[in-house]
Amino acid sequence: MEHLDALENQSIYILREAYKKFKKLAMLWSIGKDSTVLLWLARKAFFGHCPIPLVHIDTSYKIPAMIAFRDELVREWNLRLIVGQNTAALADGMGPERGRLTCCTALKTEGLQLLMEERGFTGLILGIRRDEEGTRAKERYFSPRDKHFEWNYKDQPPELWDQFKTDFDADTHIRIHPLLHWTEIDVWEYIKREEIPIIDLYFAKDGERYRSLGCWPCTGRVKSNATTIDEIIAELRSTNTSERAGRAQDQEDTYAMQKLRAKGYM
């Protein structure tokens, strides 16, 4: 079986397991390339439908083009979208100037936590990949979080032969990661093959492009002349710079991502 087909079939299997096992299930859509591929895979898994509601956490610092792109796809694909926002923290003046890790925790992690509690979701599908950074490399496809959202990375469930952790007590919720085994290049090759609509912030303008999308104050562009998917793939094949090099919160501390993710960061 061809490489992209193998990745796709595995992801579809995981999405179908998640949908079968969790009645209160949501899928995080950040509007970026990974979660948009995830959304596409959900439509494959469910034969053109996306029966799982999408969740977008709006920090109010998102790049405006992302919101426009989001709303357009929601209309076109007839999606159910729930937008969450930590309005209390924003009213209190939360922003990156208070410290990037503090801001990420309040606006993203807590924003998500509030929405999950309010809606009673017990399962959340996310488009993280192992090759993004070191702590994500240690994730499971089905990863339990306790009621405080915490990830106990020192004691993760065994995961073998596609038998996942789908039984849990009332205080736990599960994060599901159907793209865990994909790489950045896989994602782009798949977008090309499937002709998946993708936000144009990834393509170069004036010698720069976004390689990873986040909030505008903390997301930098990389030098690039790649204006097509083929050029992006060619660029990725020849670069040794890491994907999240433009994400300022990662560089705050050697173990920044471990600390953020232990507390429930995506």
Binding site: G134, T135, A137, K138, Y153, K154, T254
Partner: peptide, 16 residues
């Protein structure tokens, strides 16, 4: 990548 792994010089969880 985990802080505990580096401090103790052992691998705690599988990485890919």
């Amino acid at each position: 990548a985990l802080e505990e792994e580096r401090d103790q010089g052992i691998t705690i969880d599988t990485a890919r």
